[in-house]
Design a protein around this nucleic acid. Structure first.
Lengths: 192, 192
DNA sequence: GGCTTACCATACGCAACAGTATGGAGACCT
DNA sequence: AGGTCTCCATACTGTTGCGTATGGTAAGCC
């Protein structure tokens, strides 16, 4: 089931990774100490040796996730020379990588939790700032780029919610492709 | 504090309204039987006379909310003759009414709950369908109108999340106004 | 004036979780 | 070989919140 099962002795990192897996599968609320312990084949006596509290685990796990996110998409797209193509590539890449969005959507549902909020805040502001800079490089002026970046990011977050939470029917593959092209057409400034 | 306080005998409707108030203030998770009873000046013995369970109350309250939502924005905007102006008015109205979004945002955070999901699904699909029809009347063809409606609604949902959950800094009034105009410019088709 | 109905109080049981106290077993040094 | 450190099991406490059982009281028939 999990890659980190079947070990005799655990480290704090093992608990963090198991927590991230569980968040991805069942959301933050499902991360209980005893369920995690069962999954790792130990009891909660072990957990409280590694962590002071459940919240301490969550913070550590989210810190780890934020680290991974920072070196994620941006690093891959950043080498594209043409500013406009860089933005387009960002949109397309975002639309096709499903896996990473599962985690993001799970965290989106847990914004109530005080440990989640600051992480999501930092991640979102970093992403919007990057997108805004890219749009400015692609020809928009400062405030337009900022507004367009917020609009695009809001559309991303919203569509993620709408589809993942089944508020809108999950579109067929080809229809979603057409939607993405529509979005690119509407939100990416034309080539200069 | 609440309008429904200071009554001797309660009806099921009083509990539903109190539940909606609580959801708006503190979210769905805060709706516990005993807290509600304290607010209404009674004990839980009363509650379980009116409702079979906490979930039954939630369903009844949400049903009531959905009713109110249906006759809400759409009815007010629908009388505007010009299709394009109707869409613009829809965008502007949505941007200025803050109060209603508080409830919507609270429900957005509770999509995990099985009673919330179908309500939000119906409401969202109804809104997207209306917006799509309006955009088509404003000159877009069928698939473009559908995609644009989804994009706009996703942007609404996403921006609501981003601001209400403090993932992005709450913009100054004038800056938000400029943002709304930017969105209208980007998403509403030009006058024919 | 008794009887029913509607609404509410009191006092439970129960399950889920967080967190604590304490001891034990193995690895590893010296 | 003895001691220490690390990791874990067991067995508790405490809280929160749902739901139930049962009795009480006021209002309205008859």
């Amino acid at each position: 089931m999990s890659a980190s099962v079947e070990r005799q002795r655990l480290s704090a990192g093992d608990w963090e990774l198991a927590a991230l897996e569980l968040i991805e599968e069942q959301g933050v609320a499902a991360v209980t100490v005893e369920l995690l312990a069962r999954r790792l084949g130990v009891t909660k006596g072990s957990f409280y040796w590694h962590f002071a509290s459940r919240d301490a685990l969550l913070e550590a796990a989210l810190k780890r996730w934020e680290q991974l996110d920072t070196v994620g998409v941006i690093a891959q797209v950043d080498r594209i020379a043409s500013p406009r193509e860089r933005v387009v590539a960002l949109f397309r890449h975002t639309s096709h990588e499903i896996r990473e969005h599962v985690m993001f959507s799970a965290l989106l549902r847990a914004m109530d939790h005080p440990a989640v909020q600051p992480v999501m805040q930092r991640v979102s502001q970093r992403r919007v700032a990057y997108l805004s800079a890219a749009l400015r490089a692609a020809g928009l002026e400062r405030t337009d780029a900022a507004h367009r970046a917020q609009l695009a990011y809001a559309a991303y977050v919203g569509m993620l919610q709408l589809i993942m939470q089944r508020m809108l029917p999950r579109p067929a593959h080809e229809d979603f492709e057409a939607y993405v092209e529509h979005v690119i057409d509407a939100l990416v400034p034309p080539a200069s």
